[in-house]
Simulated assay, not measured.
Amino acid sequence: MAQAWRCSGLRWAAGGPELGWEGGRRTALTWGKRVAFAVEEGGVRTCVGARGHACPVRAVVSGRSTGARCEECARLDRAHSVAADTLADDPRPYRVYLAWFGPGMVKVGITAEQRGPARLLEQGAVCFTWLGTGPLMAARRTEELLRAALRVPDRIPYADKRAVRSVLPATAPERAREVEELHARALALPGWPESLTPAPCDPVDHVPAFGLAQLPPAVGEVTELVAGAALTGTLAAAAGPDLHLRTATGVVVLDTRLMRGWGLVPASDGLPALPLRPFRTSAGTAQDGLF
């Protein structure tokens, strides 16, 4: 019987995207790389735990959950996140950023300065710029200021981000325009926290890092993993947690968060395909790991 691997998620390293595996191994993902796996026959999806700790009851979780956590582990993970506003005494400096995902889709967010641009890559930001740096609560107040004064959201659904990746503006200056305009408006607002140091507008374009240039429109996206089913393709692009795979039927999008919690094995002939739904597009808005 083939060895089963458990995916810990897609990470963005200095050299590009990598799939992580329980035990610490990583598989570098390069354009054109073959990605082929099957879900263990008879397997179930179990909770991945929280904050580096295994789920004490190894709870079974839904195949469609992107969090791959049971209710209790999800609560624990959320309680210790920056987004939960429970880390007011965190002494680290934080950065406020503006991230662009497509026409009309700009969000504001914060990330620890020591993380660099990792958070932007994880979210699938096509273009971004820093807005300022300071203590956590000052960064949080700035984020709230932009939401209230400029109606800039702090979240954009992944489905909306995916829908525009194959129809983005062709040039980096075009992709940076909305971020530049919003950056100027943000700096002109009254009420900025004195402890937050503004940053100049310096847009960073992730189209090359994600491989989005000339990306063909997707025809489908994986809805969930199911025991005994498989997926085979070659990597066309990657953005945030998503892999865009060229398959026999066209480009298919796989949210790698759906892989977590399953036992995965090499794909073999004759297995049914993972369930897909038609892709929603928008016109303007030794075995090294498993593979």
Rank of each mutant, 00 (worst) to 15 (best):
R51Y: 09
V252L: 13
L245P: 02
L235S: 09
L131E: 07
D205P: 08
C127H: 04
P203C: 10
Y158Q: 11
T223V: 15
G15H: 03
M1L: 12
G24H: 05
R75Y: 09
P190R: 15
A149P: 00
R257I: 00
V48I: 15
T232L: 11
D242E: 14
R162E: 08
L212K: 07
P266D: 03
D202P: 05
P17M: 04
V108P: 04
T281P: 02
G63L: 06
L258Q: 04
A50Q: 02
E144W: 12
A209R: 13
P169H: 01
R165C: 07
G250K: 01
A50D: 02
A118F: 02
A229K: 11
P91K: 03
G191W: 13
R95F: 03
A68K: 02
A237D: 09
L290G: 02
V96E: 00
R45H: 09
Q287Y: 09
D269S: 15
Q3V: 05
R151W: 14
L145H: 05
C70S: 01
R280H: 12
R58W: 08
T27L: 15
C55G: 08
R78L: 13
R147P: 00
R119F: 08
L19H: 03
Q287L: 14
C201Y: 08
E113Q: 13
R119E: 12
T66A: 08
T171C: 14
Q114G: 12
A84C: 11
A125G: 10
D160S: 13
R58D: 09
C7S: 14
V106H: 00
V222L: 05
T171S: 15
Q3A: 13
W192S: 04
V126I: 05
L225D: 02
S81A: 15
P193F: 05
A2V: 14
A286W: 10
A283D: 14
L120M: 15
G228Q: 07
R175G: 02
L189G: 12
G43V: 07
G233H: 07
R95T: 01
T249I: 14
R75L: 10
S166R: 03
A163F: 05
I156V: 15
P266V: 06
A99H: 03
G116I: 01
A209P: 00
T247W: 11
M137G: 12
P91L: 10
G42F: 02
G116S: 06
L76G: 03
R25G: 05
G132I: 03
A176S: 13
P272N: 10
A237T: 09
P93A: 02
R78D: 00
A218T: 04
E194S: 15
G16I: 10
A218G: 08
E178T: 07
E40L: 08
G124E: 01
P275F: 03
A159F: 11
T111H: 06
G284E: 13
E180F: 00
C7T: 06
E143Y: 04
V164A: 07
T232Q: 14
E181M: 06
A139I: 02
T142F: 03
T46G: 03
A139T: 05
P275H: 06
F128Y: 15
A286E: 07
P278S: 11
T171Y: 11
